[in-house]
Nucleic acid binder design. Structure first.
Length: 623
RNA sequence: GUGCUCGUAGCUCAAUUGGAUAGAGCGUCGGCCUCCGAAGCCGAAGGUUACAGGUUCGACUCCUGUCGAGCACGCCA
């Protein structure tokens, strides 16, 4: 049960509205309840009266008056009267100090107020999306970090979460690398094969493939005669031969021919162990059991396409098989979706449709969330629509699973262009982490020279993760952002390290309290016996911030927007810092107030730690 | 050409999904450590929310148009 005051008040206002306006017939009305933005308008407000008044032909203030008359909130709020109505019909609510303390107690007891929206239902989160034979680069950073955070948030709100790493292990490029490795076995033997080797082979293969395509495209574009075309084809014949050979290997691969499979499996193992190590460094929970390669859907593809065609959803067009989606109920998408190429091969759209069916109908997912680049937006609209049309998103109970593209923007360099190295290569995630770690280590040496070197190294790792993850999660998901190492590893301002620092100061207070007054001074039983302090403005402000937590997590799970959580963490760290400045804890006037404030610190620490953990930011005791 | 996303303080970003006086951080200026970690806090300056209309009690948010930016546009993934 949600026990944050916004939820409670929301419920009370819903009841009051139903009571005041029976003509609504119990219809669900959004009461528009939320924390007030300005302290002079009380702690919470209800904005429902204006819309209701309009709808029911009453003046907004009259509607507000009726709501106020029907409202029962005396247990937690100061009396809400006609005097509480302001402006066009805002209803302002101020919590009673005693109620504030009571709500904090309830929150502390009851999962920090986080709602159980999932109720044990299954949510699949598609994240990471590495490709075989490729190093993880910045392109994978957002999918991994955002996907991991969304998975954590969904799990925290009661969803059973299944992460799926949709590994690109299927296409022609992989076959090319496989072919190349079969031709030229690695010098040190298969056991010495590294992801670097594979990465080089991949790029070489890709270049060859592009040369082939480009040559033929040029020939077609210039409308060359057979003779000239033949010469050009001779020029690209080397590349062409490679492509042909790769196609042959792809066929053998898809037939699971043992010799080819052995090479492919080696590529897979080398890639995945290296990539999962990077995920672990990013504090992202992406494990071997989450790998669900595209190849796993291979056996389903022919059946899916046959099903689509048999029901008239997929039709022939210029030799290819396409699904038309231009009907309004499909989203009026002009571009048809190709599910089978002219040469009979399937595409990633086919795989994605098969994956939806698998996730919804075999695994039972109520939500399928894709943390994937926004540039694939059209593709997602297309195959979501196709999958829905085919009924693949329908659950056994007849309800429709929610297919959600949690799209994110591009990481840019300082020049505003997509982030690349000087030589135009993708930036490796390992290099990025190394750099962030070095910066963090240097800052730590300057700020806290007393840290033992081995401890400092571990802290630098944690700070680097905080810096990178926070920078990625703190802006609206769909925005592009410019990668700026200096800004993200800064220990001040809106950064991950600043949040860690707030948690460290809280830990430090608890530690010192224990040192000075004995371990029992901070024991749960001792703290639980003290009431939360809400007399000082800074105490009340901190309390109100804490009480927002559950609602924020719930909204984050619904909107799939981690930046809300970042904003909250920032607010909380800020409220705490102000409190820390104005309200001595260890130096409080008497033992009772000290214990009381310690309890507030304990809850603050718990909420901040919970929030940071949801963001995948390590919580430290010292830094 | 069509579609998607976007345009907010000098810079980087928010804004309770239509709510009250548009808020933070960085930078600038001014205060605050004999006291719990100053990596902090308090205050000041900084805005025609690209522009023009429209919808209504109320618009950064919704609708139309203009300008500007990025991205994507059936047989790659």
């Amino acid at each position: 049960m949600a026990r944050d005051p916004a939820s409670i008040l929301r419920q009370r206002f819903v009841e009051a509205i139903a009571l005041a306006f029976p003509q609504l017939g119990g219809e669900a009305i959004d009461p528009g309840v939320g924390p007030s933005r300005a302290a002079q308008h009380g702690d919470f407000q209800c904005n429902a009266a204006m819309a209701l008044g309009k709808r029911l032909g009453l003046s907004p203030r009259e509607a507000a008056a009726r709501i106020v008359g029907a409202l029962r909130a005396g247990d937690l709020a100061e009396p809400v009267t006609e005097g509480s109505i302001a402006g066009p019909g805002f209803i302002n609510v101020t919590l009673r100090p005693g109620a504030l303390a009571g709500l904090l107690e309830e929150m502390e007891r009851d999962g920090l107020g986080v709602p159980n929206a999932g109720g044990g239902r299954l949510a699949v989160v598609d994240l990471c999306g590495v490709n075989l034979a490729k190093q993880m680069h910045v392109g994978h950073l957002r999918s991994t970090v955002i996907g991991d955070t969304l998975a954590r948030v969904l799990g925290r709100t009661g969803w059973r979460v299944l992460r799926q790493n949709h590994v690109g292990d299927w296409g022609l490029p992989i076959a090319m690398v496989t072919a190349r490795l079969m031709d030229e076995p690695p010098a040190g033997g298969p056991d010495r094969l590294t992801l670097d080797d594979l990465d080089r082979a991949y790029r070489a293969a890709q270049r060859a493939c592009e040369a082939d395509e480009a040559g033929l495209a040029a020939a077609r574009r210039w409308g060359m005669g057979p003779k000239a075309l033949g010469e050009l084809e001779a020029q690209v014949s080397g590349a062409r031969e490679l492509s042909e050979r790769a196609r042959a290997v792809l066929v053998r691969l898809q037939q699971h021919e043992p010799g080819v499979m052995a090479v492919w499996e080696r590529i897979r193992d080398v890639t995945m162990s290296a990539c999962l190590a990077v995920c672990a460094r990013l504090n992202a929970e992406v494990l071997p059991e989450h790998s669900a390669g595209e190849s796993a859907y291979g056996p389903d593809l022919a059946g899916v396409v046959e099903d689509l065609r048999g029901r008239g959803l997929a039709v022939e067009d210029d030799g290819a098989l396409v699904v038309r989606l231009d009907a309004p109920q499909d989203g009026a998408i002009r571009e048809p979706l190709v599910v089978r190429k002219r040469d009979g091969a399937f595409l990633y759209a086919t795989t994605d449709i098969a994956a939806v069916r698998h996730r919804v109908q075999r695994l039972g997912a109520r939500r399928v969330v894709y943390a994937v680049d926004a540039r694939q937006g059209l593709h997602f609209r297309q195959f979501f629509a196709a999958a829905r049309r085919a009924g693949y998103a329908r659950l056994p109970d007849g309800s429709e699973a929610l297919l959600e593209h949690a799209a994110f923007g591009t990481i840019l360099g300082q020049d505003g262009r997509p982030f690349k190295t000087r030589s135009g290569e993708n930036v490796r995630l390992t290099d990025l982490l190394d750099q962030a770690q070095e910066r963090a280590a240097a800052t730590l040496r300057a700020k806290n020279p007393d840290l033992p070197p081995d401890e400092a190294a571990g802290i630098a790792r944690a700070v680097a993760v905080a810096a990178i993850r926070y920078a990625d999660l703190s802006t609206e998901r769909t925005r592009d952002y410019a990668f700026n190492l200096d800004r993200m590893v800064a220990f001040e301002g809106s950064t991950g390290p600043y949040l860690q620092y707030a948690a460290v100061r809280l830990a430090s207070i608890m530690r010192k309290a224990s040192e000075r007054h004995g371990a029992e001074a901070v024991a749960p039983a001792t703290l639980a016996a003290a009431s939360f302090p809400c007399a000082h403005p800074a105490e009340k402000a901190l309390a109100l911030t804490l009480l927002r937590f559950g609602d924020v997590v719930g909204q984050c799970a619904e909107s799939l927007e981690p930046h809300r959580l970042c904003q909250f963490a920032q607010d909380l760290a800020g409220s705490f810092s102000a409190f820390f400045d104005q309200c001595p804890v260890l130096g409080a006037e008497d033992a009772a107030l000290r214990t009381s404030r310690l309890r507030l610190c304990g809850l603050t620490r718990a909420v901040l730690a919970d929030c940071l953990t949801l963001l995948g930011i390590p919580v430290l005791d010292r830094m």
